[in-house]
Structures are given as structure tokens and as C-alpha cells.
Design a protein around this nucleic acid. Sequence first.
DNA 1: TTTGTATTGACCAATCCGGTCAATAGGAGT
DNA 2: ACTCCTATTGACCGGATTGGTCAATACAAA
Lengths: 207, 207
Amino acid sequence: MEPKFLALDQEKQDRILNAAMEEFAGNGYKNTSTNTIVKKAGISKGLLFHYFSNKKELYLKIYDYFVDLFLSEVQEKVDWEDKDIFNRHRQMASLKIKLFYQYPNVFNFLNAAFTENAQDLRGELESRRERFINHNYREMLQDIDMSKFREDMDVSKMIEIISWSMEGFAYKQQAKFKGLSLDEMDLEETLQELDRYIEVLKYSFYK
Amino acid sequence: MEPKFLALDQEKQDRILNAAMEEFAGNGYKNTSTNTIVKKAGISKGLLFHYFSNKKELYLKIYDYFVDLFLSEVQEKVDWEDKDIFNRHRQMASLKIKLFYQYPNVFNFLNAAFTENAQDLRGELESRRERFINHNYREMLQDIDMSKFREDMDVSKMIEIISWSMEGFAYKQQAKFKGLSLDEMDLEETLQELDRYIEVLKYSFYK
DNA sequence: TTTGTATTGACCAATCCGGTCAATAGGAGT
DNA sequence: ACTCCTATTGACCGGATTGGTCAATACAAA
């Protein structure tokens, strides 16, 4: 990210980042107007182009910034010694929720970036995608303690079902949080709710 | 749908419908150009506007057409006497796959329509959404035989996990089918693969 | 008052798009 | 071969929108 931009106070940075991500996530690259972004962020057009030299750079800088932020967070905060698949998922969920509090549209934005196919971004994005998916799910689920699973069912299918459940839960939570203010969202409560699903899965799939 | 349009031979109809759905699904309403649709469908611009009076009508007519098609199919083909949740899901999956063969983008289109927020469509779409979600998931999962579930876990959570797994499976299959020709996709094989996941879930959640 | 930086927003050239319509193609009937 | 009618074409246009610029202003510090 540009040093000029990073010198801004955090609140203004976040206003701009969130405005841009919300628009990009909701409308795609091409159909997002810089006019809308500046209006939503409460800054002038000129200022946006003072920080980012053009729309394409705005998009890619934000993309890189958050991929880095998230991946380094994961690398750093996850306890890689713990080989229990549910604990791994729970830790990831916790990180995601924390990031979600500050940037409610990061994951929508990153998901959208995954299916984005604007001409201007082709190539630039394509080379970046692999990194993200490799890191996110491969690394996370490798090195798992398989011996805990019941032996009368297909382990890989159980693992898939667990992932799908985590995604389903995340999606459900996000819909629930839509439109709520920050202090109405309770991290602990959400994690406890998640634990109840984990309980069901653990009880079903573990020995 | 316009009678003029329905008088076309099926193959041309489908070419137009699929082209439109693919574009609308991938780029959203506003960012979809009728120029692209006609190019992809292999017809002239004039002809499209001969069948559909304008872009908005094109979108909504297609939406209504496929919602009706799918819902009536469900109403008609599902065996409502069978109260087993897995059989219900399996039947729904079978219907979806069949429709997917003829219209590979119906569900992408309908999903996109669900989050579409173009100014021109607001209101028109909003009033239509409720109907779809009510029918699709409420009706499908009501009237289920709960007595088959284990009693030491939360039934509603198991039901959610089952739904999330079906969605995850569908998503995975669709990614797998991406770019394949019709005759490379095998309905029976897909259903058998689905059955293996159902087996795991049934074994875990049923008494 | 001066100087230097942060910020504004009117402005513009370029692009693109939905929709029209005069013209043509092509088939059926005679 | 000719007529008639419908199906289909695609060049064309007014209007809307956009990314990006830049001269002007606001503001803070000295």
C-alpha cells in the first residue's frame, strides 16, 4: 500500500478500504464506479487518485494488502502444534471473525475477486489466486490427526463435510450480522454457537 | 414467456436463454450488455428485441420462466409421501442435475438474481424473492420424519449440517463439471457419489 | 503573511449501451 | 417466376457514465 495512504489516520483509511471493498464485492470491478466509492467514503474524487494512481491499482493494492494481512495473521496466530481438525477450524473462525469486525467486507471482496473476470485484471489476478487457495485450505488441513476419526467411515468425506459445515455456519452468521452495528456482534457468543455445531460433528465423527 | 419466442425451435431458444443466463449470472444485470448476449447466442441484436421488448423484460421473463419451471417440477416430481430427509434431498438433487444438463447456468443465474441489486430491478425482484426461498427450503424440509434421528444430539443442527453438506456437494460437482461437455457428465455416477456422502451422514445422524 | 501540503469537485474526452428501423433474406403459395 | 409475408439483420444514434485531470481552495505551521 502507498506510504502516503498509510500515513492517514486509521479511521479514514478504513473508511476508504471498506467503501471500496463493499462496492467491488457487490458490483464487480468494472461496474464499480470510483464516484460511488468516494461518495461512500466521504472523500473527494481527487483525493482517491492522490493515493492510488488509478482504479486498477486501487483494486490490486487492496487485494494484496488483505491477502497478506490475513495469511500472516493465520501463520502467526494459529497454534500449529495442535493437530485436532476442529481446533484448527475454530482458530481460523476466530481470526476471520476478528477481521470481519474491522472490515465487514474483506471476505466478500476476496471471494468476489476469486470469480472476477474483468479484462483489465486478467493475468494480474490469475497469478495471485493460486497462492491464496493453496495457503488457505491446503496448509490448514494438512498435518491433521487422523487417528481420532472413527474407522467405519470414509475419513476424507468426513473432512469435507466438516469444511462445508464451517462454510455454511460462516455464511449463516454473516447473514445474521448484516446491518448490525459492531457492538451488537459478540465474538464469544458466536464462537460458542460454533462450538455447538462442532460438538455435533465431533460426536458423530470421532471415536 | 412471449409466444413469439416459444415458437422458435428448442435449440435456438436454449441458445438464447443460456447465453443470457450466463452473462447475467457472471456480470450482473447492469454490467451485462445485450451486445454480448446476442453475440454469444449467435443472433442479431434486432432479433433479441423482437422477442423481448427490452433488457429488463428479458431478465424478468427468464427469471419467472425458470422459477416456475423448477418449482412446478419439484411440486410434481418429488414424492411427498416419503418423509425421509435424505430421500428428499436426493430427489431434489436429481431434479437439479437434470435441469443443469439443459441449462448449465440456471442456478448460477437464480442465485445471482437473489443478490442482484440493480436499480431497474428493485421492487420487481424483491417481490419475487420471497416466493422462491419460501418454497425451496421451507416446504422441502417441513414434514420430515424426525423420529429417525439420534436423540443425543440437536436435531435442528443435524438438519442444518445436512443442508450445508448438500450445498457443498453441489458446489463441488459444479466446479467439476465446468467446461465439460454434456455427455461427459453422468447423472447416475453423480447420484452415486452423492449417496456416499448421504451414507456418512445417515450413519452419523440416524439411530 | 508566507509557504507548503492536503483536499476539493467541476470538467472532459472517450467509451459503451439500449433500442430503432429501413433493408434484406427466404420460404410458401400460386 | 412472381407475390406476399414473416423472420432476421446490423448500422446507427442520443444519451448516460466513467476514469482521470488540474486549477483552485482550505488549512496548518512557521
